[in-house]
Amino acid sequence: MRVKVLFFGQLKEIIGKTGEDVNLQDGISIGGLFDRYASQYPRLMEHSSSLLFSKNREFASRNDALHEGDEIAFLPPVSGGVGGSATSDTGMNSQASGEIAFLTRDRISASSLSERLQCSRDGAVVEFEGIVRGESGGRATLFLEYEAYEPMALNKIREIIHELKQNFMIDGVGIAHRLGRLEIGETSVAIVVTSAHRVPAFEACRHAIDRLKTIVPIWKREHFSDGSVWVEGEKNSSGSSG
C-alpha cells in the first residue's frame, strides 16, 4: 500500500524533507512506520517520547493501522497558534455566522476581527493579541518563523470555536494566526470573543488561547544572532503517541 508521510518543525530537518509518498506492507501501524524511519534516521529517537502523530488530519496513536491513501504526519509538540485573514494567501480560511477562523502571512489585529463579529446584542468584546517579544531566555530575538500543518490546524481552530460556543454563553468567536516570518512587535495570534456579558467572554477567550497552544499543529522557530531553535510546547494529552 502507498501512504503520504509529512514532517514538521525540527523533524523535517532531521529527515531532510517535508514529506514523501512511501510503499509499505499491509498491516503496518503508525508505530511501525516510525520505527522504519528511526532506523534510517537515528536522531528521531531523541524525540520519541514527545512525538505526536496524526492520521488523515486527526491525532492518532502509534497502534493505529495504516491503509491505502492515508496521510500521516510526524508532529513535534505544538508551540503556539494558527490563524489568518479572509484574504489569506494560504487559502486556509473558514467563516460561518459569528465565527472566523483563518491562517495568513499578512498582518492581523484583534480590532479587525471585532469589527466583523460585533452585533447589537453584544455587551462585551474581549480581545487578545500575542505579540512577538524581543527577548527569549535572556537572548535577544531577531525574528520568529511560524510553520503549521495548515489543513489540520484550521480544522482544530474550528473545533476550538465549537467548544467555546457549546461551553460558554457567547455570541461570536474569531481566531487568526500568522504564519511565516514575523518581526519584533508584530501580532502572531489574535482572538476575539463577543457576548452579552463580560464574564463568559473573558473565560472563553482564556480557554481559546490555552486550547490553541495545546491542540493546534503550529510550530515556532526563534532566530538569534548566533543561530536558531525550534520551540516545542508541552506534549498534547488530546493526541496520543501510544
Rank of each mutant, 00 (worst) to 15 (best):
S112V: 12
F74I: 04
I131E: 09
S85A: 08
D89E: 15
S97Y: 12
S109D: 12
D122N: 11
D106V: 03
L103H: 06
S85Q: 02
E127G: 07
A124W: 05
G83H: 04
T87Y: 02
S85R: 02
S112M: 13
T104K: 02
G83C: 05
D89M: 06
L103M: 14
C119R: 13
E99L: 10
F128K: 09
V78M: 07
S136G: 08
R105H: 09
G81Y: 07
I100C: 00
R121K: 14
A73Y: 09
C119Q: 13
E115H: 10
S120K: 14
R133M: 12
S94T: 01
Q95W: 09
V125D: 03
R105T: 10
G98S: 07
E127N: 13
P77T: 06
T104H: 09
L113F: 05
P77L: 12
M92K: 10
E99I: 13
V132M: 00
R107G: 02
P76F: 08
T104N: 01
A101H: 06
A86V: 13
S114F: 03
V82K: 02
S109K: 02
G84N: 03
L103W: 05
R139C: 06
T104M: 07
R133E: 11
E99R: 10
S79C: 04
S120W: 06
G137S: 09
S114E: 15
E129F: 00
G83Q: 00
D106Y: 12
G137N: 11
